[in-house]
Nucleic acid binder design. Sequence first.
DNA 1: ACCCAGGAAATTC
DNA 2: GAATTTCATGGG
Length: 277
Amino acid sequence: MSILFENVTDLDLHETLLCGQCFRWKERPDGSFGGVVRGKAAVARMEGDCLILDGAEGSDRGMWHDYFDLGLDYGEVKRQLSAIHPILAEAARFAPGIRILRQEPFEALITFIISQNNNIKRIEGIVDRLCENFGEPIFGGGAGSSGGRFAFPTAERLAALSPDDLMPIRAGFRHRYLIDAAQKVADGTVDLESLRTLPYDEARAELMKITGVGVKVADCVLLYGLHRLDGFPLDVWMKRAMAVLFDGIEPSAFGQYAGIAQQYIFHYSRMHPELFG
DNA sequence: ACCCAGGAAATTC
DNA sequence: GAATTTCATGGG
């Protein structure tokens, strides 16, 4: 079974799925991508301006439309952002097919806790092992050969574990952070869904109740897991980029789509390390 | 051997 | 309170 979207603009799967906002999609030899979203495995590919999800049994169009944020006009977003600063315009031109995915909040929380003081390659390996060890196996459909054959673990499952139970995923000092996050989500101490509408600073403060969540990780959870496009995560790359490429400019200057600007700049910077040598 | 990685907690000054 | 050190793990 396949799901097809026609007339899709401003989407490049390679740019969107491998730009550091998510960690579970794997590129396949034929250029398609295998991944798992909301417990459904699928293979994604583009043919011209058509987005095709193969083997997505049991999942509906709406879920994928939502995930790829197809309801937002990124052409208009880029017009607005490009008018703000010429280097931002260049960064958007460099990877015009980046979209901000609407990932699951708990997955964003866990994966970006793992991301701290870590590199993207190793983050992907840890997340893979986390899902293989503690996620529900997925049967049938695109699951067979897509690489990711396990759902992302639930908060309830992880909350029942101890830090030492996570030894197989080899996330080191982050084990206790992951358990604390799972427990606070599972017992309602932190209500992730409520963060969609809370004022930004209050939403950030809620997330920072979790041990291992500081400002940067909280901003990533809000942007990638709750689609707070006004969020602007500042990691080591972004701090360098702001200092070197946008000296004197405050993130607030990027407006309501600051988070999208951040992704263009982050990816542009990572692909041009010589700018900061 | 040394340094860094989409940081944050623990310790020290 | 602000500045520095430590925290696992793996790759360059």
